[in-house]
Amino acid sequence: MGNSVGLMDRFRKILGLRKTQGILLAVLSLLVILLPLVANNYIEEVATNTLFYIVLALGLNIVVGYAGLVDLGYAAFFAVGAYTTGIFMKFGLNFWLTIPIAILFSVIAGIIIGGPTLRLRSDYLAIVTLGFGEITRITARNLKITGGASGLVGIQRPSIFGHILNQITDFYYLFLVLVVLAIIIAIRLHNSRLGRAWQYIREDEDAAEAMGIDPVKTKLYAYMIGASFGGIAGAFFAVKMTAISPETFAFTQSALILLAVILGGMGKIPGAILGAAFLVLFPEIFRGIGQMRMLLFGILLVIIMIFRPQGLWPERKG
């Protein structure tokens, strides 16, 4: 127990939280861990979905927030991961073994999109990534191996230690583990030589290059890491849904993830978490008011962006 308190304390310091906020974080963690014991299926479903978007937002945050790059086609990486796992499982491969392949393929996709385009100005990058997202979706729609417009169905549920993961609670905990891993990796990247290099480039690319930093290579790393977050999330998405279709990976999906990052505050881990949670939970909470909720949602987003352009999560003062 003492050890776990120490761990929480370290976590608190890394996140730059005060003592009271640390306690809040501990209570929140406990609630998150115990949620399935008290929640019904619907709440668990929504919570699992939230966790899933948190992983995606943390991944995109590395590209957009850490490295300061535009990416309007992030759903493409998520699609590559989901389809890779789906297809290889159809060929009989065990789910867990498809994960490294899904990572590999999404990283390759990241290199394909990033390699030639990272020399471009950011407005061009926006257009290219947007195009790449659409190309990925349309390709999935037209290939036989991806199941065409109807997509892949009947993807097997994975098992762990002989226990088949087919309850929503199983996936809730699975995604919770993913979120924790994603947070740890995001923090470690942020506090590393590579993380600093991203920040130097974001602040002043010329000065960074004068310090011996290769901007193209450094940015490409951000794309590759962001892509592997997307790929892993996609792989787990495929087995949770057991069916995937091209429309899941439309532009609105990319836009939603980007919105989560911007809304929470670019480059900030708690911000990405908050942003993703907000975007998933808001429409669910206001389900009662029907179509009006999307209007309200839109207005609220505009208001937030006007009054807090830096995002919801507060800036850390140095």
């Binding site: 602040e203 000065a207 011996g212 890491i225």
Partner: peptide, 27 residues
């Protein structure tokens, strides 16, 4: 051309980038 929103030490640490090598897995 300083990295204005970083600390003085972090600014100077940028100089050591070319003399070090830790990458993704190191991080």
């Amino acid at each position: 051309r300083l990295f204005k929103d970083m600390t003085v030490l972090e600014n100077v640490m940028s100089g050591m980038h070319s003399r070090t090598s830790a990458g993704i897995f190191g991080a």
